[in-house]
Structure formats: structure tokens, C-alpha cells
Amino acid sequence: MFGDAVAGLRRNGLMVAAATATIAVALAVAGAGFLVSANLVHVAAILESQVEVVGFLRRDTSAAQQQRVLAAVQAVPGVRSAVIVSRGEALRRLQRTFTSMASINSALPSNPLPDSIEVRVAEARDVRAVAQALQQLDGVDEVTYGALVVDRLVALTRAVRISGIALAGLLAVAALLIIVNTIRLTIEARRQEIEIMTLVGATPGFVRGPFILEGALQGAGAALLSTIVITGGYAALASQASASLPFLPVLAPAMVLPQSLALVWLLGIAVGIAGSEIGLRRHLAT
């Protein structure tokens, strides 16, 4: 049967090559859609992970009190991490951020900043509850978290996630339709061969076998082509992006390519088989 399938592919070389190229493009687009989607979701996760609640501590809190506040904050549900930032550290950060203020030390009689506790939340939507819990703790003076920004961010990341998944889904469905149709056309072009087979008494299983195998081989061939394109393209883009746009958090190829390629191979082979089956069905009805 394998020999028959290979002979069939070879005999229809030009058509098979055109169909395989079409399927490879469809698969590459679906695979690329998955990569874009994964990166969008990744960006959303990074943005959310940077949401911070800052609790300013009263000036009269002792070190022991600060540690109690820290332990209490870490026990609040939704808190990912919490650290105490001393007023000296806060001032150094300020100077690093605004280099023109490097000489602020000498301009001020003393450091005006309070000690603070910086809290990161697991999910941005928890930030309001965490801020309220922090405000209740003894020793905490004032809490800020940029309510408006966080609300917008939560809405934005949700939209990014949904549109990323929708994009990947849409491209996968488009690839599926293109592959099924392409394989159906290659079978349609050979309908006379199938007709003669059935009229001289070939069993449906005997007719089906080589065509199904051809569909799977075409799908696999197209998957191989798009693997080369996706792997090469993504590696080049990722290294380009990290060199020229370092602030853009692009997922490393090893983090995301395996899933994308699994999708491409699964789509290629499974849909190649399904396309052959659909194409054959109307010719094999008795």
C-alpha cells in the first residue's frame, strides 16, 4: 500500500507539489498565528506581573513591626511577593531613575521618603482587594496602586488574550479548510482512476488505503516545509527583536516553537487524512 501511495504521489507530481505548497503555506500561517498569539498572551502576563501595590509605612514603625507587617502581607490571598524597601533604597532608586536629581542629597536636609512595602500580586484583578487588606494593617500609613491604570491594564490584557487566542483559532480553522479543500481537489482530479477501480471490483478499503496514506504523506511533507519556515523565521525574528527592541518581551524559541510545531504536524497529518476521506466519500458510495 505504501508503494501504491508513493507511486500515486510521483505520478501526479506537479499537482502534488502545488497542493503540498498550498498546504505548507496554510500550515505556516496557522503556526505563525499560534506564535503571535503565544507572544501576546506572554506580553499580557508580563504587564500584569508588574502591577504593584505600595504601602508606605509610618515613620515610627520599628524593624520588628515592619517584619510583622511583611509576614501579614505575605499571608494575604493573591499576593505573589512582598519586600520591604528602606527609605535609603527608595532615594537611590529615585536618583537612578532621574539622573538630573543625582545631587538631591546635598539639596535636602534629610531623606524625605518613608520606608515602604512593595507587593506584587499574582493576578492584576486582585490588586484592589490586596490594597484594601494592606490598608488595614497596623503600621501602614498610605497605600497606592494606580487604580485607573490597573483597571485599564486588566481590560487591555483580557482583550489581548482573547484576540490572541481568537487569531490562532481563526488561522487554524482557515488552514483546516484550505487543506481539506486542496486534498479534495487532488482526489477530484483522479476521479476517473477511482471510478475504474470501483467498477472493476476494488473494495472500498483497497481504494481508500493509498489515497489516505497519500493525504497523510502530503500533510507531513507540508508540515516539514512549514517547520523549516517557522523555525528559521521565528529564530531570526526573536534574535532581531531582542537585539533592536530589548524592551519587547519576545518568547524564546525553545519556549514556544515545540507547541507551534506540534500544532502544524497535527493539523497537517490529521487534516490530510480527513481531507482524503471527505474527498473519497462521494466516489465510494454504493
Partner: peptide, 10 residues
Amino acid sequence: VPFLRRRLGV
């Protein structure tokens, strides 16, 4: 049906 058709030439 295929086995019937094997007894017919068309």
C-alpha cells in the same frame, strides 16, 4: 458489491 463486479467486464 466489489465481488459481484469482479465477475463482470465493462
